[in-house]
Amino acid sequence: MTSVDLQELTAMALEEIARADSLERLDGVRLRYLGRRDGLVTLAGQRLRELSPEQRAVYGQEFNRATGELRLALEARQRELAVGEEALREDAEWVDMSHPFREPEVGHPHPVAGLIREIEDIFAFLGYQSVAGPELEDDQHNFQLLNMPPEHPARDAHDTFYLRPPAGGWLYRTHTSPVQMRAMLGSRPPLRIIVPGKVARRDNPDPTHTPVFHQVEGLCVDRGVTLGDLKGTLEYVIRALFGRDRRVRLRASYFPYTEPSLEADVACAVCQGAGCRTCLQKGWIEILGSGMVHPEVLRNGGVDPEIHSGFAFGMGPDRIAVLRYGLADLRDLYENDLRLLECF
């Protein structure tokens, strides 16, 4: 055998490598040419012993080059075939990756519960702790300690559900403010709390009323708390809830348990203040009631108004949800229609 034979053999092998169309066939080619015992090229290599030292050097070089070239070709072809075969196997395991998923696996938050958590987070940022209080109250905490003795005209706005005997001494709280009293009576200033929870008023259900709804109460009592602090807090919170550019205004009002009393309005998003059905032609939408805690109420809570002052506010997350999400009917919030819940 000569170098020329070796070259022919190599060319044949390369051609067969290129033709092999499966890993199995390729392995056959490898064995035929480079098989450890009887591969054709391997056998050709054994001729080295028969050659003179000079010839041996030349032929040896040829041989090494040929086997190297074949090995590289085998590897390359093997990679090519492997990729193709894996592709076929994967194709057989085809999944329709265009499948649209309209109903994700996780559940959805209720818009009001979600809003309450959002309000809690905003206030947590300002250092307020979220606390709870009982939903059934006595007249004392719901009214009297809040400066609303029996027959007080302000009670008109609090159409109250009373319990029947033997539980006749209890009522369903008409606001979350009694928790203010409980908080003041239960600890010393400084105090920064918010109180989310259910309240009830005797209103027949209609698009703007449900007999049970939610409120978030807030209370801050410390030395030197001012109405300016109330204003700054409310403006921050309202902007956090309604957007940086939403206009806010504070309006003088009256509540028996605050003095001075204020109500906050936001500009109507529907008409931008021009007046429309949503805002009853006012251009503004009432969002919360607030004020400086009345000195008498502080005293009722065991706080000395000569040393401490404070502000309080109450807002309705149900109403805020209606405004923020464009809900047409407040009652929808309590039907738990998944078509609605899945939008949050």
Partner: peptide, 14 residues
């Protein structure tokens, strides 16, 4: 509960 696929509901207490 939400992570397990349940959506949050609120109903009246009455």
């Amino acid at each position: 509960c939400r992570a397990a696929g349940f959506s949050e509901a609120l109903t009246l207490s009455l």
